[in-house]
Every structure is written in C-alpha cells, then in structure tokens.
Amino acid sequence: MSTPTGEVYRVDWLPGTDVLHGTCHCGAEHTAQDPVEMWEWMLAHPEGHEAREDVR
C-alpha cells in the first residue's frame, strides 16, 4: 500500500502459517496473526516503531 505522500507499507503472509510480516516505510518490522493488529501498528507511526539500523 502506498499513501499519497509516497510512504510504502508492506504486509507479507508467511506461507504455511497464520503469521503476517509487516514492514513500515521507516524500515521498522512487526509480525502478527491478526490483520487488524498489523494495520493498527503500521498506522500508529511513530508509536511502537523503532526503525532498523542499516549495518554496513
């Protein structure tokens, strides 16, 4: 899903499970079984988010 501001939210289903894996536009990641919980987490930005640090 992309917002009008160009932010990209991605939710993938992990095959063989009931688990969803979400990646926010900031790089933070979250897993949940409930789709509503996943979207609430994504849209609550920045609460509950900690962007991952790029390790190079």
Rank of each mutant, 00 (worst) to 15 (best):
A32P: 00
L20P: 01
C24R: 05
R10C: 08
V11C: 06
D18R: 13
P15S: 13
E37Q: 11
T23N: 01
T17G: 06
Q33R: 15
E29W: 01
Q33T: 15
T23K: 13
V8P: 01
V8H: 05
C24P: 04
C26L: 05
G27I: 10
G27V: 05
W13N: 03
V36C: 02
W13A: 12
Y9T: 01
P35T: 15
C26M: 04
H30T: 08
C24V: 07
V19T: 15
G27E: 09
W13R: 10
T17E: 07
P35R: 11
C24H: 13
G16V: 09
D12A: 13
D18C: 06
D18H: 13
D34L: 02
E37A: 15
V8Y: 02
V19H: 04
Y9E: 02
H21W: 11
L14D: 08
R10D: 10
E37M: 03
C24S: 13
V11S: 03
W13G: 01
W13P: 00
V11L: 08
Q33D: 09
C24M: 05
T31V: 14
H25V: 00
E29L: 03
V11R: 00
E29M: 14
H30V: 14
T17W: 08
E37T: 14
H21M: 08
T31K: 08
P35W: 03
V19M: 13
H30P: 00
G16M: 04
